[in-house]
Design a protein around this nucleic acid. Structure first.
Lengths: 234, 234
DNA sequence: GACTATAACTGAACGCGTTCAGTTATGCGA
DNA sequence: TCGCATAACTGAACGCGTTCAGTTATAGTC
């Protein structure tokens, strides 16, 4: 095994280096040219390999989106952890995560707009609810869990427990809306977030009113039922 | 111009007859084989034309979905008009429309599951919010308007005015959920509708409480802002 | 019935994502 | 240094949606 100087990590094999070069080229192309205009042949040419070589380390073009998604979630996680430190107010914590998420996905707005269709298909590898996206999804859920847990929020216990998943759902809905945002640098979506966070905060707090217990129960039951739609029949 | 017997409608031209045959074949194929397995070459073969002929009357494969959507909305409109006659209770009226819609789209569940990605892309011809789907969208909006108007529902004036559009949005969200429903004959989605309609009814009625005026205003402002996302910058 | 403008249609070709039988490069034991 | 197992890579080919220069059929006019 060859090694590079004295650093402890094993030297990457030739195949691994080729795979890394392909990804670097591909991510650049996606950022610059979008989803449609980025072709496998184009990636191959720019990475100086043949089209077939790409498929040694990448099952499909869609899997590029999967890797992009994973890397973006990792960056959101890191930046959010820094920005959340010391902040206790729920609305402030939620706004931080939403802002960080928007910042980190911004460079890929064009890709997302053109490729959102790939992601929404239930049996696609990049479906946000699918098996192959489990890891980044659970990392985002954990992030939303800390948003709730380390905050001053007081709310019905069961609502509080379901909140991370509900917030994640709102993020997904928001991203769907974001893909159709035609404003410069998606500032309309940013404005929407600034508007929606205090609204959501008020809405959660008002559920403490006994009159609304029924509505809270309804909402939780409905989302629970919706989650089961995609399960296989017994 | 040739004419068939004494009926008043002009005889279709040869091109129109070919176009109709292509559609009949294509819709059958979509119902039976789904979106992916239905190929333009296959349609051409079954309609006994060359692939190029299809493109004389159909701009793209996606436009098949557009026509399917339009025809389905027309059927929903007709059946709903019959079933709604004499019914005044809001929840009952809403449930009728939702049931009819589910019934009419049911034969195309497989197509919808495989092609939902085409429909969600913001610049796709079949985007539910796009220009090319304006006619069926407005027909559905009018249907929801009659659901509200001819009902016993009492609610805040502005909420009542926005309600048709909100209900249409819920239908779209429901259809998105429906595409990932794996249960036999999508009975889980049907159960979801039966559950959701009374919930929504209760939620709307509870907004009469003065305490919730702020939340109603918030909701309306948020949906108004969301609608503007896709507008071009000034 | 002959002529002709145009409606209708054809099918090879393009670029796409993807596959895989075949070829070349690499690194290790003898 | 040689031999060779296997890792790495190639590129022609497939089926797809779509295009368009070229061909054929139709219907109205004289």
């Amino acid at each position: 095994m060859t090694s590079h100087g004295s650093n402890g990590t094993p030297a990457p094999t030739k195949g691994a280096r080729t795979a890394a070069r392909i990804r670097a080229v591909a991510f650049d192309a996606l950022r610059e040219d979008g989803w449609r205009a980025t072709t496998m042949r184009g990636i191959a040419e720019r990475a100086e390999v043949s089209p077939g070589t790409i498929y040694l380390s990448l099952p499909s073009k869609e899997h590029l989106l999967l890797e992009l998604y994973g890397e973006t979630v990792a960056r959101i996680e890191q930046r959010a952890a820094d920005d959340l430190a010391g902040v206790r107010i729920f609305a402030a914590r939620l706004r931080i995560v939403m802002r960080v998420a928007l910042d980190e996905i911004a460079p890929f707005h064009r890709v997302a707009t053109e490729a959102i269709g790939q992601a929404i298909a239930p049996d696609s590898p990049v479906s946000p609810f699918g098996d192959e996206t489990r890891a980044p999804r659970e990392r985002m859920l954990r992030l939303f869990a800390t948003v709730v847990e380390d905050s001053d929020l007081v709310a019905d216990r069961r609502l509080r427990e379901a909140l991370p998943e509900l917030l994640w759902g709102l993020l997904m809905a928001g991203m769907l809306a974001w893909t159709s945002d035609r404003s410069r640098e998606q500032r309309r979506t940013r404005a929407l977030v600034e508007q929606a966070v205090p609204m959501l905060d008020r809405a959660i707090r008002v559920t403490a009113v006994p009159l609304l217990r029924r509505q809270v129960r309804d909402l939780l039951a409905l989302t629970a039922a919706a989650k089961e739609l995609s399960h296989d029949d017994a």
